[in-house]
Amino acid sequence: MSVEVRLPTLLRPAANGKAVVTATGGTIGELLANLQRSYPAIQGQLLTNEGSLHRFVNVYLNDDDVRYLDRLDTRVSEGDTVSILPAVAGGAH
């Protein structure tokens, strides 16, 4: 499964400046792991050493925060869009 992943500005330098990359994986966890393999500079920014999501990172499958779906086990399907965003105070638009 190959899907589009949108990166926040602060992660783009680690991905050769790209705002959108493609990554493969059947779940969000596999996808993030593959993303880190493709762009090693991202390592440590998304996942903690224990392998859970960094506290200030929100990952969205389409419009839904995966923390409230099945977290890293959330299934990804063809045509989905994954967005990675830093957590900020509400009302930021």
Binding site: T9, L10, Q45, F56, L85, P86, V88, A92
Partner: peptide, 12 residues
């Protein structure tokens, strides 16, 4: 707003 963040620890 998130574009202005310099690193993830600026998150909230």
């Amino acid at each position: 707003a998130v574009d202005g963040l310099r690193n993830l620890d600026d998150g909230y």
